[in-house]
Design a protein around this nucleic acid. Structure first.
Lengths: 217, 217
DNA sequence: ACCTGAACACCGTTCAAGT
DNA sequence: ACCTGAACACCGTTCAAGT
């Protein structure tokens, strides 16, 4: 019954993408992918040298799909913000993928489309050519770091979240006003790290773009 | 010979900190910690509900130690930059800790000292009180995300690094100039994600601070 | 009251043996 | 030529049994 079967690399990636999107992406594993394909884990190792290489390939497909739905529009700042939000949404709650993208970039067409759009937007902004590579680099580091961090936060279990929130409350509300005057003063206003993520993301990116703008001659 | 022995929570945390600092921090595990203590993994579960709680406790001690060596000095911007670099160095190459800190904050005194200093610096900057909580929040999200991302990058093996760099080179140098004109134009200048990390970190943080400054009435 | 051993339910990866 | 099974060296966590 277990007729053996050659899987194409693309079929493997399709299934991996599905598996990462549905269910809890944090627990994606080579073994689960093999089970979903109905094959043995070891057979995947002829297609990919290791798990990272597999995830990197999936990340590139996700970038590719995201860029298909993206049309450059508006000012250079609006374009970059839209792109960043688009990537944020594409990687969504998938910390493994976001981390892999942030760590190694990804080598395919998806990656190229992102690079191309960012470089063009910076040119459109009027940034001098010789400053573009370094500003581009900072921007990608920033966006990748924010997305990976956020995907991590959104993937924690409800139990862990409660635990963390409780500790945060204790730290803030229980702070000695003598030793931590500012903290005591703002105690009721200060928000835990995970709060209000989309707004935080957008304003940080926008803030950095404004900073770039200020440097344009 | 295996006399049994009660470990205090502090002794456990000391050993965990050592283990995370030395050797490859990425592979830190409860089992290795138990081995280092000469005890059984299961006995640690009376001190900590789970691995995350343990890591969070270690993270707080690291913040505490970092803040002991920190003296506020200079303008508010210099203070925040110095603090950010200090945290960056403290978490160093420990992606597990940096991630835990970024994900849940940490509930102890170390955490409080960091919050207090940031809040005070923002006050010293002249930011209106009602804007401080939200700006504080953005700043912590940004710093935590950058540190966690960087710790992740620095913890990859030489082999994975080479693999990633190679893929990046292929993506950039092999880009079709018709389809990716800007990428082809900047091919030789564009740098991979991991390059020049400290400078990227500092300039992104400084950029965001300049953005805050521009909003001060 | 505290700790241990054994077990459960997992990982990524390799490689000799099968078809 | 391709795939599989079994194995290796790990994980975090639980809980009955020991002292």
């Amino acid at each position: 019954m277990t007729g053996r079967r050659r899987w194409s690399t693309d079929e493997i990636l399709d299934t991996a993408e599905d598996l990462l999107r549905t269910s809890d992406a944090e627990s994606f594993s080579v073994r689960k992918l093999a089970a979903a394909l109905g094959t043995d884990p070891s057979s995947l190792y002829r297609h990919f040298r290791n798990k990272t290489e597999l995830l990197r390939a999936v990340a590139d497909r996700i970038l590719l799909a995201a860029m298909e739905g993206y049309r450059p529009d508006g000012t250079w700042k609006q374009r970059i913000t839209a792109l960043a939000l688009c990537l944020r949404e594409a990687f969504g709650e998938q910390p493994q993928l976001a981390t892999v993208w942030g760590r190694y970039a990804s080598g395919g067409t998806g990656s190229r489309l992102v690079m191309e759009e960012l470089l063009q937007a910076l040119r459109a902004a009027g940034v001098p050519d010789e400053q573009i590579p370094v500003l581009y680099h900072r921007l990608v580091v920033l966006i990748a770091a924010l997305i990976a961090a956020e995907a991590g936060v959104s993937s924690i279990t409800a139990e862990e979240y409660e635990q963390g929130l409780e500790q945060f409350r204790v730290a803030v509300l229980g702070a000695d006003p003598e030793r931590f005057p500012a903290l005591a003063f703002f105690a009721r206003e200060v928000r835990p790290l995970g709060a209000d993520r989309r707004a935080a993301f957008e304003e940080i990116v926008d803030g950095y773009l404004a900073q770039i703008e200020a440097q344009i001659p």
